Simulated scan of single mutants.
Amino acid sequence: MRDCYSLIRLHFIPRLVYPRDLVHRYGKWAIISGASEVIAKAYAEELARHGVGIILISTDSTSLNDTARTISDTHGVEAVLVEADFSHGALTCKPIKDAIKDKDIGFVINCLNSSLDIPRDFHDISESELWQIINNTVSAASLITRLALPGMAEKQRGVVVNISSGRCFRPYARKAALSASTAFFDHFSRALRYEYGHRGVFVQSLLPGSVASEGDDGSIITGWLVPQPHVYARHALSTLGISHRTTGYWPHTLQLGLVRLRDIRAFSPISLGR
């Protein structure tokens, strides 16, 4: 009964309430890191629908020209593109500093690279690729959040959302980089919450399950447990200010609950004795 109540309070009641004024509550601009990811794009469009200006940060800004144009044309807000490859070091922060200067930053959205979900033996990842993974996930999320936090703390308002994966609850073979990165995002969020929650900054660890993406043949497979990105983003945004740690989508919450229950049963004393 407690779990049912939590599910309803988090995922259903907020969606029945009239949409909140996100600009007034948190700020006028959002920084979207890892903006080439489908969830990040959908989240950016959902924020833009609420009147929030968007700063898209990616290692390849040219791939986001259409996204920025769509956001501006459809929602009437400004969309700024910033190219930043954090494997080049801390100097990568300079164009981001220039982009956010004198802007009322209310949102920092860090999104994990979905390509980490592809199974690979760890020793098959080259040194240069591993360097790219570490710097454009862990370093990028840390540095971008660091740039925005002073202004948020001073204004006593703001949001940091770290989007990783529901797979962070346990390690997976042949996905060491994914497991480690999602664990960092999750613990980073929880630590920031303890440090900045009393300063008016809401920090959320978003742990989605599978979200639909376009395949190599252009097809998109969706379903109850695999929502369209914009559907997921709309559900996830409704949990903002309510839950610090959530899947963001109620079928994913049910799915994760069943997985965790299975794990508990598998490692119970009775099971271990068989």
Rank of each mutant, 00 (worst) to 15 (best):
A177M: 13
L225K: 12
L258I: 02
S271L: 06
V203L: 03
G223V: 00
G200W: 00
L261A: 15
P251D: 01
G209R: 03
T246F: 05
T239Q: 08
L240E: 05
G257K: 05
A177H: 07
L272F: 11
L256M: 09
V161C: 11
H198F: 09
H198I: 11
H244Q: 13
Y194T: 13
I220T: 02
E195C: 10
Y194K: 15
L192W: 00
V203D: 06
P227S: 03
G223R: 04
G209E: 04
L206E: 01
W224I: 09
A266W: 12
T253N: 07
L261I: 02
S179T: 08
P251W: 00
H187N: 11
R262I: 10
I221C: 05
R170G: 03
E214L: 07
S238K: 08
F184S: 02
A212D: 01
P269N: 09
V161H: 04
R265C: 12
S181W: 03
H230L: 14
A233R: 08
L256T: 09
E214F: 03
S238E: 03
T246D: 05
D216C: 08
L261E: 10
V160T: 08
H235V: 09
G248R: 13
R167Y: 05
S243T: 06
V160W: 03
A212M: 02
S268G: 09
L206H: 01
G257R: 07
N162C: 05
R174W: 04
D216N: 14
H235K: 09
T239L: 13
Y194E: 12
A176D: 01
V226Q: 10
G241K: 04
Y232D: 08
F169H: 14
R260H: 09
T239V: 00
Q204D: 00
T182G: 01
Q204W: 01
V160D: 00
L206G: 00
W250H: 14
R193C: 06
T222R: 07
P229H: 10
E214D: 01
I220W: 01
F188W: 06
F188P: 02
L178R: 00
W250R: 06
S205L: 03
D216M: 14
A191G: 13
A183C: 10
F169A: 10
P229Q: 07
L178E: 04
F267A: 07
I220S: 01
F169W: 12
T239R: 01
A176C: 11
G215C: 07
S165R: 09
R245W: 12
V160L: 06
S165F: 04
Y172P: 03
H252R: 12
A191K: 06
D216R: 15
G223H: 02
G257S: 08
D186V: 08
Y194L: 15
F169V: 10
I221K: 15
H187L: 10
S213F: 08
R260V: 12
L258K: 14
T239K: 09
S181P: 05
S271P: 00
V211E: 02
I163K: 04
R174S: 12
I264F: 15
T246R: 09
G241F: 05
S243D: 13
W250Y: 13
E214H: 00
H198M: 12
A177W: 03
S181T: 14
R174H: 08
K175F: 01
R262L: 15
V211M: 08
G218C: 05
A191R: 06
G215K: 11
L225S: 14
W224H: 14
N162S: 09
Q255A: 14
R262F: 13
G257D: 10
V201G: 01
L272M: 10
Q228G: 11
